[in-house]
Design a protein around this nucleic acid. Structure first.
Length: 872
RNA sequence: GCGAACUUGGCGGAAUGGUAGACGCACGAGACUUAAAAUCUCGAGUCCGUAAGGGCGUGCGGGUUCGAGUCCCGCAGUUCGCACCA
């Protein structure tokens, strides 16, 4: 499809390029680092992309939506910061290096260039001077500085931690890279291995991160709920169970087992103590007990696969050890190693109360451990109450519980904690599910952790003047493991403290670190320090953040943590990075398969009605599900190809048109084509108006009906589109613009009436201004034609509706009998009730149906409805 | 298992408790054309009826109300998130 030369055809290629150049030439989207004081600021940010090589439709939707907000707010008089950058570190670059021999840096920078090109063709109102790429030393060097400041502030820790180790690739894998217990790439059986790792102490901020959620009113409720659960605050008690007969040579630390419980009220129902397979005491037992060692090894193998966790039955190993009970001096309870106890939560040990916890009950039944009911539900009697196969987790009255008998569960919890504290063996505590954030990755393509390991001085921070610690370019990927480790010289340096030979840390940061502060860097991307305080304080928080729901937990939580930690270290002054969050839906597409079951690209398929055939071979094609665009299903549509065929405005208009932005949308050929037709139609109509209605056309004092109707539609549309955009209902705004377009086209029929030329120009001009956030190029082009000399659309204020044209002159009311519609009548606005009701009663169809009925009630809702209630 | 969201024509969807289906896509009829494309006009929830009009309609069952897509209770289905959290 090529643009033809006829004047009625809109040549989007040249027009779009021209306006993009015009905007760039005039730097219209440039804002200073410190927001100007004369206008309110507005910071719009979309989640920056990973430079995979090609922009996809999800990006187009995300950025089109952000651009609507940015351009709208600009028109409303805000000074808008709208930057773009690249989340440029990460594994795919290393994979490309290993598979195709391209250097990760080259690969990444080439991808960025390609994607930047496509983004620019889409005409987004981005401040390109602020572009950043996380893989450049200018960015990651500042990140190293922040890390060292966090370290000095006590927000960083180095400790041993379990990782998924791939023994073939010599690398650590993320949980999602372990499939069925094997490495996703090598297929090797994954081992659990302990490595020294750097941790960011996000748990220090757990209460702040939880409380902060309450202030995030413009976040989706479900995201807040997900984060709340992830942080996982719970109240309970910690207490120690001393070992009755500690084995010889046991560390004092292991003489007792510490347990966390939310149910200290049920302590008298205890029948065993269970520890995690990774618990230090389990390891101690395994030293001398081969069976225990075998059991632990088995648990670890199972632990790696997700399905195994789902279906694994509760299994345990009796260590033979016994513990004493703080409230029952005469009793002793067995210590089991159990596969359902998590080392990561609480203390890695629990006391089992089978009557009050389903897991404990299942475990007790399996191993014939005693079950003592301690909570009596209302309506049961102690003598006859038995626990069968369901534990009672609800409220009730304490029984079989010594000094707690007769208390409610809540009172018993308080009393139990008081007693534990009195005995000095435990206390009430708040426990958090949130764990510290391990940020070490054994990879090349990431931000180097700025630490030097010295045999005498330990882990020494790289001095500020030696920052950034740059990645060496001369690396090879011809053998497994981390290239930084194999590099002949890079890691060998002098210790900054003592000057003796030492080695650099060869781990790099988790890439989530890179994206945890980029929004702050955008406020002053060229400053020598990580942030410029005045810029950061001036622009932050981000007023509207837009991205996919897949980042609901990790990215958003880490960014919130970084903001609080950066506040503590003096980099900025806000507590929350994103005041408003919008999560947009995915872009889906039909998928296609040929007769042999191979996926086909949309452009290989010829659709006709409900069936499809292969474009070249003519063989039948199976139309599959509508699902997320993905390379593996080949159901992708490349934005650049769409821009080639239809132009940027059409692509943008379509992704904004039909579906509400928070929901998934389906990309269809017919849909884009329809959007393309609308672009052409608008162009035709507005150019026709410009040609036939004089520029100096004046409004008429007395407007004929058609003129009045068009002007009122114009002004009502201003209100409707404004409301829709404020509510993020872009699809509704699009619908209202369709309506105004049709009304404008209708105006031609009454072209000769007094004031119509003015009304049509007004409608056309308004249409340009209102559609500019969605179709900025077309809006500029048409505005230049319809409003010569008025300057660019990007320099115009958002239109204001004339209140005089928003009033209604006549209203149509529905007339109901018993709530059923029976007719409609017209009335003056706010006409008195008696007159309106009388007119309603006289409406022929209503009168007919009311014949012989007794009206018991007449309901009149002014300007809306009249409803007659009749006796039955 | 726990939690959340959603369910409206052939399709995407609209609708401060007040005329359900705006707007778009697909579809049908007509105009223009030698023809097609493009464009323009008109039509359309469904059933009965020539029509006027009427019955039924927002997943299912109940409730509140003069009036429910909208509020409340229960159920089903779909989707998403978390998942042995002591």
């Amino acid at each position: 499809m090529t643009a033809d030369a006829s004047p009625a055809h809109y040549d989007f290629h040249s027009v779009e390029r021209r306006w993009q150049e015009e905007w760039a030439k005039n730097s219209v989207f440039t804002v200073p680092d410190v927001p100007p004081a004369d206008r309110p600021k507005y910071y719009v940010l979309e989640m920056f992309p990973y430079p995979s090589g090609q922009l996809h439709m999800g990006h187009v939707r995300n950025y089109a939506l952000g651009d609507v907000v940015a351009r709208y707010k600009r028109a409303r008089g805000f000074s808008v910061l709208h930057p773009m950058g690249w989340d440029a570190f990460g594994l795919p670059a290393e994979n490309a290096a290993r598979e195709r021999g391209v250097h990760p840096k080259e690969w990444t920078l080439a991808n960025i260039a390609a994607m930047r090109e496509t983004l620019k063709r889409l005409g987004f109102s981005l401040n390109w001077d602020r572009e950043i790429a996380t893989c450049l030393p200018d960015y990651y060097g500042k990140q190293q500085k922040i890390f060292l400041d966090f370290l000095a502030a006590g927000l960083v820790d180095r400790r041993e931690s379990w990782v998924n180790w791939d023994p073939v690739d010599h690398t650590v894998l993320a949980n999602e890279q372990v499939v069925d217990g094997r490495g996703w790439r090598s297929g090797a059986l994954i081992e659990k291995k302990k490595l020294s790792q750097w941790f960011l102490k996000i748990t220090q901020f757990a209460p702040d991160l939880l409380d902060g959620l309450k202030t995030l009113e413009r976040w989706p409720e479900r995201v807040r709920v997900m984060q709340e659960r992830w942080i996982g605050r719970s109240e309970g008690a910690r207490l120690r169970f001393p070992l009755a007969h500690p084995p010889e040579g046991l560390d004092a630390e292991l003489n007792s087992v510490e347990v966390f419980t939310t149910r200290p009220d049920t302590l008298f129902g205890m029948s065993f103590l269970a520890i995690a397979p990774d618990h230090p005491l389990a390891a101690k037992v395994a030293e001398t007990n081969a069976d225990a060692a075998e059991f632990i090894a088995e648990c670890r193998r199972l632990g790696t696969s997700v399905e195994a966790v789902e279906t694994a039955e509760k299994r345990g190993f009796d260590t033979g050890l016994k513990v004493a009970h703080p409230f029952l001096p005469d009793a002793a309870f067995p210590v089991w190693i159990a596969n359902f106890v998590l080392m990561d939560y609480g203390t890695g040990a629990l006391f089992g109360c089978p009557s009050g916890d389903q897991r404990d009950l299942d475990f007790a039944r399996k191993y014939n451990l005693p079950v003592t009911p301690v909570v009596l539900p209302a309506g049961e009697t102690a003598d006859t109450y038995r626990i069968m196969d369901k534990a009672w987790t609800g409220d009730g009255t304490m029984i079989n519980s010594g000094f707690l008998d007769g208390l409610s569960c809540a009172d018993a919890r308080k009393e139990a904690i008081a007693r534990l504290e009195g005995l000095g063996v435990g206390s009430g505590v708040v426990n958090w599910r949130l764990r510290d954030w391990g940020v070490s990755r054994q990879r090349y393509w990431g931000c180097p952790i700025p630490i030097i390991h010295c045999k005498s001085c330990g882990a020494v921070p790289v001095p500020d003047e030696q920052l950034p610690v740059e990645l060496p370019d001369d690396v090879t990927f011809d053998r497994p493991g981390n290239p930084l480790d194999h590099h002949p010289t890079w890691k060998h340096v002098a210790c900054p403290k003592c000057g003796k030979p030492a080695t650099r840390e060869t781990d790099t940061f988790d890439t989530f670190v890179d994206s945890s502060w980029y929004f702050a860097r955008f406020t002053a991307p060229h400053t020598a320090t990580p942030t410029n305080k005045a810029a950061a304080d001036g622009w932050l928080a981000v007023d509207q953040y837009i991205g996919g729901i897949e980042h609901a937990i990790l990215h958003l939580l880490y960014a919130r943590f970084f903001t609080k930690a950066m506040k503590q270290t003096g980099y900025l002054d806000v507590s929350e990075p994103f005041a408003g969050l919008f999560t947009q839906g995915m872009v889906n597409h039909e998928s296609y398969k040929d007769q042999n079951g191979n996926w086909l690209y949309p452009e290989e398929v010829e659709r006709s009605g409900t069936s499809a055939t292969h474009r070249e071979t003519g063989t039948p094609v199976t139309i599959g599900r509508v699902e997320k665009m993905s390379k593996s299903k080949r159901n992708t549509v490349a934005p650049s190809a769409i821009i080639d065929r239809f132009g940027a405005d059409t692509a943008r208009w379509f992704v904004l048109s039909d579906s509400p932005p928070e929901r998934d949308m389906e990309w269809t050929e017919a849909g884009v084509a329809g959007a393309g037709r609308f672009v052409q139609r608008l162009f035709r109509i507005v150019t026709q108006v410009a040609a036939s209605c004089p520029v100096d056309a004046a409004p008429a004092a007395e407007m004929p009906e058609a003129v009045d109707t068009l002007r009122r539609t114009t002004h009502r549309t201003i209100v409707a589109v404004t409301e829709a955009l404020e509510a993020f209902a872009v699809n509704v705004a699009v619908a209202r613009l369709h309506e105004l377009t049709s009304a404008l086209a209708d105006g031609e029929r009454a072209a000769d009436q007094p004031g119509m030329a003015f009304a049509r120009r007004e409608a056309a001009r308004t249409l340009c201004l209102l559609s500019a956030p969605m179709m900025p190029h077309l809006a500029e082009e048409l505005f230049a034609i319809i409003a010569p000399g008025a300057g660019m659309v990007v320099a115009q204020a958002w239109p204001e509706a004339d209140p005089a044209l928003l009033t209604v002159t006549r209203v149509k009311l529905a007339v109901q009998i018993m709530g059923k519609l029976r007719g409609t009548i017209e009335a003056e606005p706010d006409e008195d009730a008696a007159t309106v009701i009388a007119r309603a009663e006289a409406e022929p169809n209503v009168a007919r149906l009311l014949e012989g009925q007794k009206i018991v009630k007449r309901i009149h809702v002014p300007n809306r409805i009249v409803n007659f209630v009749v006796a039955r």
